[in-house]
Amino acid sequence: MKQNYIYVPAPVNEFRCRVPLKNAVQQFIVNGKVQGSNHPFNLELKDNEVMDNLLQLIGVRNSDYIDQLSCAESFKFGKYSVGNILHCSHSFSLDRFVTNENIDIFLDEGASVDYIVMQNEHNKADHNTVFNINLSQNSSLRMVFLSLHGGVISNTINVNMNGEHSECTLGGLYLTDSKQLMNNSIDLNHFKPDCKSYQLFKGILDDYGVTRFYGRINVAPGAQKTEAYQANHNLLISDNAKAYSKPQLEIYADDVKCSHGATVGRLNEMELFYMRTRGISAAEARLLQQMAFAYEVLAMISNEELRTRMQSLVEKRLKGEFAHCKNCSKNCC
């Protein structure tokens, strides 16, 4: 994966998406404010409201005037509403730049939401995001966190399942090289019975990359018939990369199905040899293995066009190229 490009920032006022996704509505959030305004981004879907299009939020930040930023966004999905969000996060800067971001997500009864987070930032970006997620009964949330590039990326994900029969799926893919650091810290609380949660976080680490996964599932007293699964798998490409993993289960109910697991491993040598005997070069074979490893998380993105787009970004990233969209040379996604 070893990167062989230099991050060249483009000024925010020139920035626009040149290859928009079909049926997507774009909204820029510049330095934490809705573009052209002075207020943060808030979304509220009314009861029964269905988003026909994908809302692509493009958060861009630069350090021309500031070196630190705190911002917040909130999302409220009304009863039986359907939401579809892609939240991109980019930094246009070469300087050290700290962002503290707070994102509140509330799903009312029966709401169903797909929310993809894509983080592609520069090597000195220090981005801490706290996601506070509250799920009401019968609601369903599917989130995928793709951390492609960045200096220090920390996602703190707090999920409270406050109503019965709610479902939460969390997927994560983090890719590090040079001295990048990526953390995912998940605290998932099953407060009510009959809820399901499923977590899959995977990382590919090259050079001196360091990642931390901390995942806690808490099943509260009385939260019977809970199903909660968690897995964290890490692939080390170099001898110097480090992956820390700390899965935790706390169960205070006696009729539940829960599991957790974590692995840290290397590319399979026999697979590699097998591919090479077929004439696939060692470099290409390693890329195929890494793509296969990443695919399990990418497959969690239900929007096919978006999944294909993300897949090609991940592939570029793993090849050591800048992860930008086809036909676009701007330094975003």
Binding site: M270, E271, M275, I280, S281, M291
Partner: peptide, 21 residues
Amino acid sequence: YPIEIPGVSNVNFIKAAVNEH
């Protein structure tokens, strides 16, 4: 004992091999 490679589809595998040849 042919090796299993989860996640790499047969078609992509053989296509990569044929095109490299």
